[in-house]
Design a protein around this nucleic acid. Sequence first.
DNA 1: GCGTGTGAAACGATTCACAGCA
DNA 2: TGCTGTGAATCGTTTCACACGC
Lengths: 256, 256
Amino acid sequence: MSPTGTRPSSVRDGRGTGGTGMRGPHRTAMSAGLDLPPTTVVRMPVYLRELNLLSRSGVEVVSSGALAEAVGVSPAQLRKDLSHLGSHGIRGVGYDVSRLQTQLGREMGSAHEWPVAIIGLGNLGRALAGYSGFSSRGFRMVALVDPNPALVGTQVNGLPITDLSDLEAIVARTGAVIAVLATPADAAQAVADRLVRLGVTSILNFAATVLTVPGGVTVRKVDLGQELQILAYHEQRKSEEPASSSALLVTARGDA
Amino acid sequence: MSPTGTRPSSVRDGRGTGGTGMRGPHRTAMSAGLDLPPTTVVRMPVYLRELNLLSRSGVEVVSSGALAEAVGVSPAQLRKDLSHLGSHGIRGVGYDVSRLQTQLGREMGSAHEWPVAIIGLGNLGRALAGYSGFSSRGFRMVALVDPNPALVGTQVNGLPITDLSDLEAIVARTGAVIAVLATPADAAQAVADRLVRLGVTSILNFAATVLTVPGGVTVRKVDLGQELQILAYHEQRKSEEPASSSALLVTARGDA
DNA sequence: GCGTGTGAAACGATTCACAGCA
DNA sequence: TGCTGTGAATCGTTTCACACGC
């Protein structure tokens, strides 16, 4: 899509890598900055979560086979993924759970708590505001914003809802760099534009619309209706299929 | 794909369909049942949504370039995706919006309304029960199930919550083949097992755990904490990067 | 022996580039 | 002329298979 500069800030790549060239893996032995393949990045949080679970149950060492099975990937894939962070396993044994946990956590940015703003507090936004899976993974909701006068001033999970017109002030004050967009689809782009102007560089978009943002801003879209439609496609295929004898249908795994 | 590998029960088998036989509404003898590439399947609902929008605004013809830009993919990719459904565009002109809409809708299973059950009505489950993006895309919530006595009997969006112990009865009665799992992580696998036994063959899993299901059952996982962690990873990289000269880092598009 | 780490092979998805047709 | 449809080239991801070290 690179071409078509029709609209304003579409952008897409740039793949700035170039520059000083030194960027590949192993920039420094210690600490992060690794350029992981996108598919690996997506799986890392899953590994991390499983490691936390293992750690909590007192497991100290885990093999790629065992961990892989727990998270539903192949052992080879797990090893390849982990190898991107350098070599931390012990041959013939496995991985030290707590070491790997630390290493992976640092790489994924779990080292500190990220302040998050939620824009749009309808049913979904309110559910997200109280979602325990956020806080347990190192995120703290610091701002709830909605234009609805009936909501402004009320609290969700102990945090007051601020009026949309105060978006700039509250984001600046709380220092949120990650925003969760749970507005109606037709409001999403306008809000995203304001957020970007404020310095927000990561957006989790629940609105069923494609956001256009400048380079340097990361957007992840979660479209719940889309997910169900994907399932419907598979359902339909199954029902059409006349129980073909040798069929061995594959199960789609997560992937996002 | 099929991560199979060493997994225990996973995959294997030819479609449990057996038992209750064909559940899905009509098998619509006519029309495809095309085996689309997984990445294409994921994008189809996005195209479909945009087509609905265009249709509603009276647009009758759209080019791959225009449609592609609206949904954030490259024109070549869009054409390739659509070409899987056969040739429906007009060279030199573009695609007939309503024709494409119909064709795509049929292929994705939007031809009829799918009955859906939601298990787990905590904050998230309740939000999903009232989520307009489901009904507007051809899904109808027909059963809400939760073990909490305080919730059982109350209504969400006009639909009463049933006790978990009545899961079998309500699923059988409503004929739901698609289920949305919004239970705590530690309850998810057990509920999934029961659902599968009941003939449910598609599960949208919001619990932060990997489900193991027999072959023929499709699972899609939506892990909200994971999504934020992916954003955190990118945030971290940006903050570590000392504003490398001409850096113009990439924006992650969908994922899958 | 066992399990990691990793090149190399296989596979799949995306992009390119252009022939073909309205 | 303009845009679709599509083989061919490219790129990225996954899987294989085996050398290496505990």
